[in-house]
């Protein structure tokens, strides 16, 4: 169920990218898509009532693996957040340049390339 909601969020982002004409809104759509994927990854490893995946001295390993949340998706999400930070920074920089050149944020008016 909760995975379906992630997918809905993903689709909301995709809708933004495909339909919106303002380039800032397109960027926001992409951010929502990446959010949805990150949320999905976190949910994959989450366990209701689970403990943080840190082994303390003398902990019972069997008990621990039964209760802890999966740490791997968390590591993945950290990496993917860093990547999306880089991508979004580049994207916003391009938006600024586009505004300088065309004087508008409307993507339908940026039509030098066609054919």
């Amino acid at each position: 169920m909760i995975y379906t909601l992630c997918l809905v969020l993903f689709m909301v982002g995709l809708y933004g990218v495909l339909v919106k004409k303002n380039i800032i809104k397109i960027v926001l759509g992409l951010i929502i898509m990446e959010y949805a994927v990150n949320l999905f990854l976190i949910f994959l490893g989450y366990r209701i009532g689970g403990v943080a995946p840190i082994i303390t001295r003398g902990a019972d390993l069997v008990e621990f693996t039964k209760n802890s949340v999966d740490p791997l998706p968390q590591a993945l999400v950290l990496t993917s957040i860093v990547i999306s930070l880089g991508v979004i920074a580049l994207m916003v920089a391009l938006c600024i340049r586009l505004y300088e050149r065309y004087g508008t944020f409307d993507i339908t008016e940026m039509r030098r390339l066609k054919g």
Partner: peptide, 28 residues
């Protein structure tokens, strides 16, 4: 950094990021 280049780069960036999001979702 001319008109065409930035426009093309933005288009490529948007579609490339969508592709990456699909791939990451698939990996997830």
């Amino acid at each position: 950094c001319e008109h065409e280049e930035i426009e093309a780069s933005f288009k490529y960036l948007v579609l490339g990021t969508v592709a990456s999001a699909f791939i990451l979702l698939g990996i997830g």
